[in-house]
Structure formats: structure tokens, C-alpha cells
Design a binder for these strands. Structure first.
Length: 463
RNA sequence: GGCGGCGUAGCCAAGUGGCUAAGGCGGAGGUCUGCAAAACCUCUACUCAGCGGUUCGAAUCCGCUCGCCGCCUCCA
């Protein structure tokens, strides 16, 4: 497996820390609102990567945080409100109920698009002691300082700050965007909070060595990733927007805490744009996966849709393109049903296709290429149908499109349909085409595709 | 202001120095059919935002121009 590593800006071979095992951490959802299909594109990337690694025979342990502590609407000043608190106010539920509601919604949405459950979903609120412990360690190591109940990370104590995003301290200074309100307790404007003192109205608060407060945004990922995957692991995934500051700060915290490199490869997914813009929950420019059902689109077709563009490239969402993907997926399932079932073994042509498919997937998840190979196989005249079936069904370990659905279903006509088919065959035998056409219209009204074969009328559900 | 990305056919989108610029959807024609449908076959960018340059050779490298997007504040 070769992956584009944001840290080195190169495509590199994945070399696991531990032989054939891979530890992988994926930034998860904040559970005070629904996720949209833009978020899901990124979660799909982590699922695809996990499946691709397993396809290559790695034993993957995947961890995804559930962020159930709200972050501030305005991180730069104390005037911002906590997002979880806002949700609580809006919905009249407790923080715990809000978190439960949206965690379940998140799991339902990911399941609908074929995302496998990860191995551990640690919740931020259940790891406050670990975060406090790491914060203490950072203070001991000279990377952090406390002022009035808030603990800050001293970015100048970490010379490698900026290595992920390119936002090194001199660049940050040079490009200071505007007059952001600077917290006067910070030694330097670029310092960020590890632990924050709780204001009087704040709902979610915990005791700490520095008084009552709550964790900073980035510390949960450092604390929880190292708890479940160890202080040295392989891959971290997330959306491009997290590169800075979230992942940059996470590196400073983790490496400052353990004094060595923690994560080998950082993999970031590009945005899904809607109407030429980033899909943002705050602006309401969003579509949820549940909205697709109303369009008659299989949620798994969204999966296929995201495979048409390389994961790290920005892509545009359009209903036309999604419908095209939906048609392709449904046809593929139908062809699988036509191909019948798997073969005993594979011929050399089929093996060559398999090698090409695997190579594409291993090449930094080149799914656009993998889909080309899939299509070429489907229309190849040199590969027997059962071998096509075998290959596509094994590739579905990566694709996750439930390609065998139609083949498995073994659709059976109802008595009514069977009677109509008999009627039509009789009419055609008598060359009574007026009746035959009338019956065909009726079958089509029932949502069926009507095909004449040497064996007579054949029907199947229309896609 | 700093950091980064994109602009390829009606739509989505591969390709990042060299045979005729992938593939999907859509569209057109054909074979088959009583007519259809399905399936299969053929066609659908003399050209890669524009203008210069490097090169024997560029969609691919360099420069400029135009248009668009993201991060730098919560954010997939």
C-alpha cells in the first residue's frame, strides 16, 4: 500500500510499526448535530483505507473518536459559546441525551453507506483523566504553562511546529490575517489551550489540578489515540480542514508528551463541494444521506460516487452525477445476477484483471482507476461469466457496494405477474400482438422490465 | 497578508513529458425483435481556461493573465 503522506507531501509505502498489523486513528464526528454527505465522504475515506489494508492482508485496528464535548463557536475569545451548550438550549435535552441522539444518527448514516464499524469509538467525556494526565506531562516536559486555571501549549517549545501544515511560526507571524482578539494570558499568540477554565454558565465541566474546567479541542485526539493505539502507530486520517490547526497541534501535543514521533502517515481527504462551495453545517449548505432515499437513490451509490474522484481531490456534488453512479451500481448488481455465481478457479485473463485492480487500490487508493478496471472486466469477452462473478464479489471487500444483492435475492414473480407472463406468451404464440402489447404495458406499470427471449417472456424488476 | 488546491467532451471525471487524450452517465446510429426491451457493436474532446516560454516533442514543465475553491476562527 502506498499513501500520500501529508507530512512528507509524497506518496510513500506503508511500513507498519508492527509487522502485518496497522493501527489507524480516524477523526470522528462531533455529536451535537447531524453529519452531512460531505462529512461522510471523509469517513468513507477512512473506511476505504481500512478495507484496502485488510484486502492486502493487514490486521487493522481502527479507532474513531466521538467528540461529545462541545467546542467553542469562537475559539479565539472567551465570548464564544460552547456548541454542545447551544444544542442543549435548542433541543431541551441534556448534553448526554444530545450526544446519544447524534451518535446513534451518525452510526445509522455510516452503516447506510456501508462503512464498517471501527474497533473502538472512544468518547471524549470518558477520557478526561487521560487528557489531564497528558497535559500534566506536557507541563513537566516544559511544553505547557498554566495561567489562571487555563493551561496553554507553548508552541515555541516545539521546534518542529508547522511541519504538517507548512504554517511554521515565522509564516504564521508574517501572514497574520487580521486583528483577532488575542488572549492576553498567552505568552505568544500562536499558543493554544490544552485545558480551559470553565466560565460560570458552562454546563460540561470537570475537576482538574488547575480548577474546574474542560479540555481544549485538540487534546482528546492525542490522549485517546495513544491510549488505544500506543505511543507509536501507523496512520491518522481526517479532512483537509483539520490539517491546521487541529492536527498540527495534535502532533505538538503527542510528540511533546512522549518525546518521539507518534504517527507515521497522515492521510487527508478533500472536500465535497455543493453549489461550488464547501458543505458547511453552519451555513445550511448541506445534504444528508437520508435525503437521497427521497430521490430513489441507493445510499451505497453515494459510496460509488465518491470513488469516481481520487480521495484527496476536491469534488463537486451534483444530483446528475449521483444518479449516474446509482444507475451504474444497479446495473452492476443486475449483471452479477446474470453471471449467476462464482467460478471454481480463475483463468489467466481473470488473474490479470485481479492484479490490475489490486495494484490500483494499493496505489494511494486510486479508485477511479479501479472502477475503470471493473468496467473493463464487466464487458470483457475473454473472461467467463462465473470468473467475473468471483472477481467482482471479492473486490466488493473493498468496494462495499453489496454487488451480490440481486444475485442473492433470486427475485420471483408474483402469481399475478406469472399469470400475465403466461397470457402474453399465449398471445404472442397466436400472433395476437395487440393483446401481447397490452399485457406488456401492464407489466411495465408494475415496475417490471419486459424482455422477450427464445424461452418466452422474461421479467425482472426495473432498476 | 501567509499556506494549499482546482480549471480536460452535454454532465461526472482519469491522465502530470512521447503510440490514435481512460472510464461512467447521457445522446446518436446499427444488429436482434412482430414492435419493443435487454444484450452486443459503432460513433460522441483534431483537443486539454487564455497567452507566452523551455523541449526534437507538453493537457502534462516554467512564467504571466483570467476564473473558482479551501485552511489560517468551529469545521470532514
Amino acid at each position: 500500500m502506498r499513501l500520500n503522506n501529508t507530512l512528507t507531501r509524497r506518496v510513500e509505502e506503508v511500513v507498519p510499526v508492527d509487522d502485518r498489523k496497522i493501527g489507524m486513528y480516524s477523526c470522528g464526528p462531533t455529536v451535537y448535530r447531524y453529519v452531512h454527505i460531505g462529512n461522510l465522504r471523509t469517513f468513507l475515506l477512512s473506511d476505504l483505507l481500512r478495507r484496502a489494508l485488510e484486502f492486502e492482508g493487514y490486521e487493522v485496528t481502527q479507532v474513531m473518536n466521538i467528540t461529545d464535548v462541545g467546542h467553542m463557536t469562537d475559539e479565539a475569545s472567551d465570548s464564544g459559546r460552547d456548541k454542545m451548550d447551544l444544542a442543549v438550549a435548542d433541543e431541551g435535552l441534556s448534553p448526554k441525551e444530545i450526544a446519544q441522539k447524534y451518535t446513534q444518527a451518525f452510526l445509522d448514516d455510516t452503516e447506510a453507506i456501508g462503512i464498517k464499524r471501527v474497533h473502538v469509538y472512544p468518547k471524549a467525556t470518558e477520557h478526561i483523566p487521560e487528557m489531564i494526565e497528558l497535559t500534566e506531562r506536557l507541563i513537566e516536559n516544559g511544553h505547557a504553562y498554566e495561567v489562571d486555571g487555563t493551561v496553554y501549549y507553548d508552541v515555541r517549545s516545539f521546534p518542529e511546529y508547522g511541519k504538517l501544515s507548512g504554517n511554521t511560526l515565522d509564516k504564521l507571524r508574517a501572514g497574520h490575517r487580521q486583528e483577532l482578539e488575542v488572549d492576553s494570558n498567552k505568552r505568544h499568540p500562536e499558543d493554544f489551550a490544552l485545558w480551559k477554565k470553565a466560565g460560570p454558565n458552562r454546563l460540561m465541566r470537570w475537576d482538574s489540578p488547575w480548577g474546574e474546567g474542560f479540555p481544549g479541542w485538540h487534546i482528546e485526539c492525542s490522549a485517546m489515540s495513544m491510549k488505544y493505539l500506543g505511543e507509536r502507530f501507523d496512520i491518522h486520517t481526517g479532512g483537509v480542514d483539520l490539517i491546521f490547526p487541529h492536527h498540527e497541534d495534535e502532533i505538538a501535543q503527542s510528540e511533546g508528551g512522549v518525546r518521539h514521533e507518534v504517527i507515521s502517515a497522515w492521510v487527508h481527504g478533500g472536500f465535497l463541494r455543493l453549489k461550488e462551495q464547501k458543505m458547511a453545517k453552519s451555513s445550511g449548505n448541506i445534504i444528508r444521506i437520508g435525503d437521497l432515499a427521497a430521490l430513489g437513490i441507493d445510499p451505497l451509490s453515494f459510496r460509488y460516487f465518491t470513488f469516481e474522484t481520487r480521495y484527496r481531490k476536491e469534488m463537486d456534488f451534483s444530483e446528475d452525477a449521483l444518479r449516474a453512479a446509482d444507475t451504474t451500481v444497479k446495473r452492476l448488481r443486475q449483471r452479477m445476477a446474470e453471471w449467476g455465481g462464482p467460478a471454481e478457479g480463475l483463468g489467466s485473463e481473470a488473474k490479470a484483471f485481479d492484479g490490475r485492480f489490486r495494484e490500483a487500490v494499493a496505489d494511494d487508493l486510486d479508485m477511479p482507476q479501479a472502477l475503470v478496471i471493473l468496467n473493463e472486466l464487466a464487458s470483457s469477452r475473454n473472461v467467463p461469466d462465473p470468473e467475473k462473478y468471483s472477481l467482482v464479489s471479492s473486490w466488493d471487500q473493498v468496494l462495499g457496494l453489496d454487488v451480490e444483492r440481486d444475485a442473492r435475492a433470486g427475485w420471483q414473480p408474483s402469481d399475478e405477474v406469472a399469470a400475465l407472463v403466461g397470457e402474453r406468451d399465449a398471445a404472442r404464440a397466436n400472433k395476437d400482438f395487440a393483446t401481447a402489447d397490452r399485457v406488456r404495458d401492464r407489466l411495465q406499470e408494475l415496475g417490471l422490465e419486459v424482455m422477450d427471449t427464445p424461452e418466452g417472456t422474461r421479467v425482472r424488476p426495473r432498476i
